[in-house]
Amino acid sequence: MLLDGPAVASLTARLSEVDQRRAARYPGGRGGRQPVHTCYVPASRVGTATPRDWGEQALAAFEEHGFDLAPGLAGRVKTKLLREPVEDLRIDFEDGYGAPATEDDDARHAAGCLAGWHAEGIAPFSTGLRIKSFDTPALRDRGIRTLDIFLATLRDLPPGFVITFPKVTAAEQVEVFAELLGAFEDRLGWWRGSLTFEIQVETTQSIVDSDGRLAIPAFIAAGGDRVVGLHFGTYDYTAAVGLGAGQQHLGHHACDFARHVMQVCAAGTGIRLSDGSSNVLPVGDTQDVLAAWSIHYGLVRRSLEHGFFQGWDMHPAQLVSRYAAVFGYYRESLDRDARRLAAYAERAAGGVLDEPATAQALSASLLRSVDCGAATAEEITQATGLSMDVLRAYHRRAV
């Protein structure tokens, strides 16, 4: 005998609020394109052609020093450096900039350069700035003033604009910053919610708070829909946990712990993750450059294998090893991912029974390969037998 319908309904009704909370907090992937990197350029070094200059410097380094890549990969990397060398760029007013007396003028100049990049058609897919932290009243006031000057000079908000909020240690900082952005929008006449930001996870307090709880969920709740990313800060974090200089690198297990916490806290929220940087720069003679490229290549591959599809680049020549690693990663998995997705679509997995979540992940990987230039839409369609619209539907789990 089956349970009485009204009795079951009265019990499960108690879960409706749970369902609503879960749907609001975990809406799923954000969709659209995620850059493979964020390039940090000190505000004092920003110029009218910075994105193009980075590409030219990277290409010159590639041609001077060479880099042993798989057949066909070198051509793809060179094409990328010519057509779209920088996918995401942050004008840095924090650690990479310092505290010069010219910050007001630099903020106006940098905002003018950003507007100029868009007018000239050389702007990266996404851009923004990193302000100073809210660590102390002096830094907080300086960061707010710089942001105020920058936005007022910019006037019109360009597409893909995002602000980096560094060294967060408390949810209240995130809450105040989110409200501050609302005040800027009101003053400038921009629509509410147009200013978004990414939180830098580079303090121990951004992993575990003073009460012993994971801190990131509270950060996300405090920032609401304005929080679009979590970016790991390699060197501040490794220093904060007491590692010596020789152990301060992305491959350290302390970084793995922090990244895994970020990953679990962001899963299902639509908030994107970015890994940190390598301070071993490809400069000097060929031997030094190749050694630095090898280190950076390995770290980028490691990040990708851990599910971090974006990372920081601090020097133009790092674009060579960035794209070599990213393109190699996606092209090596392209055929396998395409076959599995095609089999899933035909409901004939050939011994591998995949779930809808796996199809979502496979389509996401193939879409990312097209977004960054590792593969073309035609290649993906030919390999899977599926249109890009169908892949996007799988990614949204709409099929």
Results as ranks from 00 to 15, higher is better:
134 F>V: 00
277 S>L: 06
38 T>K: 10
301 R>N: 08
141 D>V: 06
305 E>A: 14
225 D>M: 06
63 E>V: 09
150 F>A: 09
51 P>S: 05
192 R>I: 11
67 F>T: 05
81 L>N: 11
51 P>I: 08
305 E>I: 06
377 A>I: 06
329 Y>P: 03
118 H>C: 08
248 Q>M: 14
297 Y>G: 10
240 A>Q: 07
394 Y>H: 11
249 H>N: 13
228 V>I: 15
159 P>C: 12
366 L>D: 10
235 Y>V: 10
256 D>R: 15
169 T>G: 14
60 A>M: 12
395 H>M: 03
193 G>S: 04
394 Y>K: 00
279 N>F: 05
365 S>H: 12
72 G>F: 04
103 E>V: 11
138 A>H: 05
300 V>D: 13
52 R>Y: 10
59 L>V: 00
184 F>Y: 15
124 P>N: 12
376 T>W: 06
260 H>Y: 13
113 C>P: 08
8 V>R: 14
61 A>V: 15
367 L>E: 05
191 W>G: 00
105 D>W: 04
229 G>K: 02
196 T>K: 15
85 P>V: 12
335 D>C: 01
367 L>H: 08
151 L>I: 07
115 A>W: 05
166 P>T: 08
19 D>E: 15
208 V>C: 07
14 R>L: 15
95 D>K: 01
74 A>Y: 03
197 F>G: 04
218 A>D: 11
247 Q>N: 14
143 G>P: 01
323 Y>A: 05
307 G>K: 08
171 A>R: 14
129 L>M: 06
153 T>V: 03
173 Q>S: 06
304 L>M: 05
340 R>T: 04
293 W>N: 04
205 Q>D: 14
231 H>G: 01
117 W>E: 00
204 T>K: 11
113 C>V: 12
385 G>N: 09
125 F>I: 07
383 A>F: 03
156 D>I: 08
114 L>R: 02
298 G>L: 00
156 D>Y: 02
291 A>G: 09
375 A>D: 05
126 S>R: 15
213 R>T: 02
233 G>Q: 03
44 S>W: 13
234 T>R: 06
259 R>P: 11
120 E>M: 07
64 E>D: 09
325 A>L: 02
138 A>N: 02
21 R>H: 10
101 A>F: 01
